[in-house]
Write a protein that binds this DNA or RNA. Structure first.
Lengths: 334, 334
DNA sequence: ATCCATTTTGCAACCGGTTGCAAAAATGTC
DNA sequence: GACATTTTTGCAACCGGTTGCAAAATGGAT
């Protein structure tokens, strides 16, 4: 069907190598030859087959883009940014949905069968073993939105979750809240653990402030709502909550509204991520902004660098977060 | 690095063809041979290279998954469903973000270079030329969420947008609204055009009901909010609005709340899609449910069928929508 | 044990490219 | 114009697989 190297060579009356060289940059071809070949190629609508090429070059320009977060709207932004940035870097994302995989083995095999040049694991909830499994199979790996401390063997790009916890704590302290709580995502997620640790650490320096914590089953609206409903029933509610994630916060807000309580009057809420929706006027969530565009761009740049230097020494790239003040915390007392 | 066919053949002391046949289903190999080869393969951790294989089989099992909707949360659900269903069918999605492409040419070339087996265009806003460009390049194409009437040369899986418009009109009529309006997405989107046409058609049968329409710039919260703010200012507001999309509806709801008006007391709203968020208790949007899981599954099944039969006669598969009643329309008068 | 039909196996060519090497052509120098 | 040097070109082998074909092995019937 499609024209091949050989067709072009015959039409141009030259050798196959000459055609190949015309389409390989850095190869030696005279101007005359190039023109002849390009003419024939244009006439036949030829463009080289990447997969055949990859057989000898050992480069497919395919990158496995792996995630299990297909329910948190922030990941739509993440996919948008990743696909664009990868495309701009001449790479192509092979998307892998790991939502119900327990074992990385299948994905590792599949990605090897497709000879991907590298793997981006974009998830804050996948256990670090997954990233390691890909690395152990010899593929360059970047773990975006991952935990930086426990897996120094794999490149990580993300935020300092513990610092976010401390930041949230300081913010609540500065607003004069005396009884605060952390409402996290799933307890098993490293991001949840680290955010809680930072939050706790900072609050331990203020012994007069009461602190508690609990976990929602997932980073989702329903889970946040359910957990908040439970908390409101047992009636040991805090004055302000640091929620592990924006979408969780929105669930929490809905439970609070249903209970006839007012935000920030009766209860203060601070989220994390600053997803698009947090800025919607009917939500107006005070939150900690995670710089996802920077994280994504840096992840791809790191991946590109690794393609040239596969044994690059592993590094963690952390980006600072900052508070975005909207309407769900009471003002700083004057 | 990774073991090849030849390595396995040598280790097992058999020919390369024998190894190849062991990993090709339907090929003739004796039990004894199979065991020998599988043993050697297991010891070397061998699995066949799909890309090399594709060179002779002319099947990559790669499917281009193309979209330009990376801002409407419903598409996160769409991507989740597509990736799962494709994976379950033994296919792999090569994700292409067409957000700022004017011309399909580049994507066509790229997808040909990767020898994708087929292309799924998942978009309700891409012009039909895009789908056609892929088909003209000889690739099987399914246009999911597309318009079915104008492009009978390309397979389409989706809903009958005009019928949705009629359905919305009937619903508003049955609730006794006398002055209704359509607040659509971008005027250029075929989905918007068809929904408006159906809505208008049905209302023309009730001349006593006043009807108007306008368009938002995009299927987005901000666009919906802005358009509703404008409508509220000019003060020729309708009693009920059929909004082109749920996320648009949510923007509309926010504008209404800001104006101090009440839903469904002062204004009724009906959306379209039934995205997850529509069911959140603090939104509680009455809407028309688009059966996206069915559309996605059917799209993939159609794609699978086309792989065996590339010249299959083009068909349109339409799925019925139904109203999901929540809290943004006033009750049917008794 | 013999013969024939069937199944299994290996050889070699091919899929669509790239690349090291040596021969051929072009260029520069005197 | 002769010679040395550099650049361009084609040959042939290779990347990691598949597959048509013919030879070898197997199995069954007599």
């Amino acid at each position: 069907m499609a024209a091949t190297l050989k067709d072009v060579a015959e039409r141009a009356g030259v050798s196959r190598s000459a055609v190949s060289r015309t389409f390989t940059d850095g190869a030696s071809v005279s101007g005359k030859m190039r023109r002849k070949v390009e003419k024939a190629a244009a006439e036949l609508g030829y463009s080289p087959n990447f997969l055949a090429r990859s057989l000898t070059t050992r480069r497919t320009k395919l990158i496995g883009l792996i995630s299990n977060n297909f329910h948190n709207p922030i990941f739509l932004e993440v996919f948008d940014l990743f696909t664009r940035k990868l495309q701009d870097s001449g790479l192509r994302p092979l998307l892998v949905n790991l939502s119900d995989e327990i074992d990385p083995k299948n994905s590792v095999r599949m990605l090897r069968q497709y000879s991907v040049d590298g793997v981006v694991v974009a998830s804050s909830t996948l256990p670090p073993d997954f990233s390691k499994a890909f690395r152990d199979a010899g593929m360059p790996v970047v773990n975006s939105f991952g935990r930086y401390s426990t897996a120094p063997e794999v490149h990580v790009v993300g935020i300092d979750n513990a610092e976010c916890g401390r930041m949230a704590a300081r913010e609540l302290i500065s607003r004069g809240y005396q009884n605060v709580a952390f409402l996290g995502g799933p307890e098993s997620a490293t991001s949840t653990q680290d955010r809680l640790a930072g939050f706790t650490e900072e609050l331990e320096r203020c012994p007069q402030i009461t602190m508690s914590h609990s976990f929602a089953d997932a980073y989702s609206f329903e889970a946040g709502r359910k957990e908040m409903q439970r908390l409101l029933q047992v009636d040991i509610r805090a004055e302000a909550y640091f929620c592990g994630d924006d979408v969780l916060s929105i669930g929490v807000l809905s439970a609070i509204a249903d209970a006839g309580l007012h935000v920030p009057g009766s209860i203060g809420i601070i989220g994390l991520n600053d997803m698009e929706m947090a800025g919607w006027e009917n939500i107006n969530l005070t939150t900690i902004r995670q710089p996802i565009a920077q994280i994504v761009n840096s992840s791809v740049e790191l991946m590109v660098a690794m393609l040239d230097e596969p044994d690059r020494y592993p590094e963690a790239r952390l980006f600072p977060c900052k508070i975005v003040e909207r309407g769900t915390l009471r003002p700083v007392p004057t």
